[in-house]
Structure formats: C-alpha cells, structure tokens
Write a protein that binds this DNA or RNA. Sequence first.
DNA 1: TTGAAAGCGCTACCAT
DNA 2: ATGGTAGCGCTTTCAA
Lengths: 339, 339
Amino acid sequence: MKATIYDIAREAGVSIATVSQVINGKGKISEKRRAEIMEIMERLHYQPSAIAAALTGKQTYTLGLLVPDISNPYFAELARAVEDRSRQLGYSVVICSTDNKDERVERYLNLLQQKRVDGMMIGTGIENAEILSPLLQQSMPVALIARHMPALSVHTVTIDDMLGGILAAQHLLELGHTRLAVLSEPSKVSSSQERVRGFREALQRAGHVLERDQIRESAADLGSAKQEALRLLGEENHPTGIFCCNDIQAIGALQAAKELGLRVPRDVSIIGFDNTILASVTSPPLTTIAQPIEDLGRRAVDLLIDELKDEQKAPQKIVLKPELVVRDSAGQAPAELRK
Amino acid sequence: MKATIYDIAREAGVSIATVSQVINGKGKISEKRRAEIMEIMERLHYQPSAIAAALTGKQTYTLGLLVPDISNPYFAELARAVEDRSRQLGYSVVICSTDNKDERVERYLNLLQQKRVDGMMIGTGIENAEILSPLLQQSMPVALIARHMPALSVHTVTIDDMLGGILAAQHLLELGHTRLAVLSEPSKVSSSQERVRGFREALQRAGHVLERDQIRESAADLGSAKQEALRLLGEENHPTGIFCCNDIQAIGALQAAKELGLRVPRDVSIIGFDNTILASVTSPPLTTIAQPIEDLGRRAVDLLIDELKDEQKAPQKIVLKPELVVRDSAGQAPAELRK
DNA sequence: TTGAAAGCGCTACCAT
DNA sequence: ATGGTAGCGCTTTCAA
C-alpha cells in the first residue's frame, strides 16, 4: 500500500503534525528531526496526497483549459504556452476539447468544478454566455483567451483583431493590389468579424470598397476553405489579394490557387492569420498576421494566479498586438492591375 | 460559499447518507425523496466534491499523459485521441510536456502521483528506465505509447515501426528508385532505428544496399532537418528517393529540394512518416507512412481502464500496423536512373 | 520544538 | 427506506 503521513510519523517516532510541518517547510523543527524525517519519506517513496491536502483547504494547484480542439495547431501551441507558465508557477492543467459545442462546454465546466480546479481558462466559443454565470457566482477565477464576451465580468486576454485586419489590408495595398477579397470564418466567430472589419476600414480609408460579395465564409476545415476559395478564384476578374482569417483557410486558398493553375504570389497573393507552424511549412511559406500565442497563454495564467493570491477581483482586460510576418505568399500585384 | 452535502441534507431534512445515495444512484430511495433532493441540488448549484470522494477510496477519474511537446502536431493529435476516449469513459486528462528531459519526466511523475491520478500514459522518451520503477512498485497503472522499454513490465501500445520502413522502401522501389537515402532521428530514438532497419532490410531483400553514409541524422526541428537534407541533396549523384522518419523532417527535405532547384517528385521523391496534418498542407502533399494515431490513444486508455476495473495486471503489448498513404511527393524515378 | 485533536466533504457499513 | 457514524490523509490551531 501507499505510505501515508501516519506511516512516516510512526517510523520516525513523532506525530503527524511534525511530519506535516516538514513537508510544508513550516513551523520550527530541529534540523536533526527534519533531516531524519526527510530521509524516511525518501526511503518509503512517500508522496503526500494532494487530494487530502486540498480537502483541508489548500488549493488543488490544477487549472482547467477549454479549447475547441487540442489537435488544431493554434490551440496546441496555446496549450503549450499555458502549460509552461502553469508549471513554472506550480500548477498543472487539465485540457478539454469542446468542438465548440455548448453542451460539451457545460459538462466540462461542471467536471472541472467537481474536481475543484483553482481556475479556468476558456479559449472556446460559447453561444450562450449564461452557462458561465454559475462559475462566477461561485467566484471561480475565469479568464477568457482570445474570446470576447462583453456581457461578462471576467478576465480577458485578447489580441487586437481589428488591427490584424488593418495590417493585412495595408500590406496588400502597399503591394499594389486593388482587387481584394476575404475568406472569413462563420459570422458567429466574433474575432473573425473584427478582423474583417479592420480590413474593410483600412481599405475604405485608402479609398477602396470591399463589396459584400467579396467576403466569403467557410467552415473551419481545410476542405471547406478550399472549396470556397475555388469558387472565389474561379470567377472572372478574381481578386489578386485574399485575406484569410486563419492559416488553415489560407492553406485552402493556396491549394485552390494551385489547382486552378494560378501562381502564388505571382497571380494571386494570400495572407493568413495566426502564424502557427502551418504557416512555415507551406509553399510558398505564408505571409500571415502573427498572434502572440505564447503571451496570450502566459498572461491568462498570470491573471488567474494573481486573483488566487491577492483576492483582487477586478476583472482585467488585456489586449495584445498582432504583427505582420512577411514570408512569400504575398507579392506585387500584376502590373496591369496596379493603380 | 460552496454548497456541501450537508447543506443539501439540511435543506431537504434528510441525512447526508441519503443525499450521498441519490448522488451515486445507489441504495433504495423513494422516488419522491430522490426527486426532491435532486431539485435542491440543482437549485443550489451543488457540485459534489470529487476531491472528498476520492479521499474516501473512490478513484480520481483523472489520467496523466506525458508527451515531449503538446505543440507538436503528432502529439497534439495523439492527445486528442486520448482525451476523446477518456471522456467517453468518464475520465479527464492532465497533459504534461516534458521536452524529453528526464528531470521533467520525474517531476511530473511525482506530481501526478501526488494528485493521485488513476493511471499514466507515457509517450515521451525516457533515458533512464529506473525512474518508472517507483510507479510500478506502487502498482500505478502505466501504459507506454509508441515507446519501447523491453525491460519494463508495463502495458505498451506501439506500431510496427519496422513494417513502416518496409512499406516506404517497397514504394520507392516500385517507383524505380535505386539511389536511396534516409533522414533519421538521433539514434537514441528507438522507433526511428526500427524504421531505418525495416527500410534497409527491404532494400537488401531486393538486392540493394543502403550505404552507411546514406543514413543521415538530424535533430527534431525543421531547420536542422533542412540543413541535413541540403547537405545530402547537394552532393553529386544525390539520392532520388529519401525516406524521412517523420513528417517534419520530410518537410525539411522538401524545402531543401526546392532551395536547390530540384523538383519534387520529378527530381527527387520524398516519403514522410506519421501522417499528421502537416503532411496534407505541404506542396506537393506528402506521401507518408500513416500511424493509426487515434487507435494508439484509444487503446492506451482502454488498457489503463481495464486494469483499473479488472485488477488484471498482466501487461499487454499491442502492436498496430502503419499504412502507406500515397500523395504527391513520391513519383517515378528519373528514367535514366531506373533499372 | 512538538503533539493532540478538530475538522475538510464524502462513502460505506451497520442499525433501525 | 433512511440515518448514525467511522474513517480517508492531511492542515491547523492550541497546549504543553
């Protein structure tokens, strides 16, 4: 059987209170006793039960992380950032893939509450904000990552999506493109809407209009994106510059262009969003708007831990800046089409 | 404060024993009482403490998963498979990235033990098998995923790496390639060695020899792989067929070929390994040896849970079959070089 | 510097 | 069909 604090105490001829003290480095224990007890714990491979400790009021030192799909490179990279920071601070993390289904979100939320995690990070879309309110009532620390839920009073770490759209537009404009289009995620994804908004406004400021039918939506998977891009690029006078709301869609566009015999970036320029590993392995490598993924994860963890420590409850809103990463998928517009 | 079982009992005017029964659906409780109590739990947003339950002998319904790096698409996909199966069976999973450092592995192992996870899955390399023995002594269920540790008596789910190498060789041979090379991971990675062994033996059986200097090693990252491939393809009479031990390396080779002005698969054919999402987004898309990632994850979880249920301790060894997935990165050998 | 004892929230056994 | 109660392994006063 597993050794308990009683076994150690008995073996050392002391009380469990004393053993507890040395485990936690608290109280005043003579150097001799301390060393003696440590030796015994070692010898018996004693691992204090975090479960029992948590029951007496200590934290569980476990955080929850909800994402749509951990196998998606963007979320995998985010999870890595969250895990790293958590480890540094002494916490472990339970990762949950929700497939963006509210029902799944709700079940995971309950589960994590039952396991008494110390806080939760939410990077998944939630249709019905209501399902978060029980958490807040129980004063569970919550941080939203790259999600906007203005109605809720919770910590939030996001990027400036609009700026991302602006950066993309500026780059395309500078390259002389005038026939532009965007490949966007379904309209319920608020961050995508912001990106499109930024893109459009930047165009307007430069005297261009982004027609409604130049904004196409597609589902999250490669196949759908490619289909949509195929339609878009198959049209007469197709756009020479396409802004995609994530790297996967950009890859779909890349593949569509190739299939239609269009050369990238010679015939058509493509800009992605996220700067996941995918952006670096395509050919040509993707010019894309980079999210500071590592920062996103780190800041979210920090917000949670700060709240756990300081009891400081005022929800913080942190907004990070995206950046343009120039690779090879966007180039000069064809001469005959340039202004 | 959070509601406890006592609050529910008081509110319902019953004993905590009764409440416990309805929570667990055990014992005989009148329909009326049961409904009444359920209603109260609902109203008070009561979430039974899994912590307290675990302390009384129940399981924690939590599993641990150790991988080198969750942001690596292969492990991200594996993690997703593990998570899915765990969820179906009522477990959650704590994911730990070890960066293949024994010291990290050891710390995580202790941590997970302290949190009293019900079992652990190990998909990370471990130099010193010793650090697993404490687990086995404590009779902690352990399953190795895609790792060989013959010395240890634990469950194992692997793929037939040698067969993978053979499939790659056969494909290249069928396409008429005779100048072959392999890009391998460092020799301490046993699975890579097996893949190379299979590749070489298949060549031998066909009357070809794989010279020692046609086997190149590179670190895990894209950059190193590309460098090594650059060297390999820069030589006179460079190989026309390259077998890479994972998709990332194959991408490195792809990029190297492109940089040298070689066309894939016209001038050089490349085969990868793993069939992660990366294989589908490159251009040309990668012909690769697919690992049954989903099965790997599912079977590992099943082994653990079975052990938890049946007390059946005999360590199982499960070996799954890899498959050749033909895309566009491998084609006919140049005519003048064909046999 | 050390120990005794009262919980923490729950399960399970034994009564009733 | 329901309740009383003894732990589970630990932390934390309060005494000694």
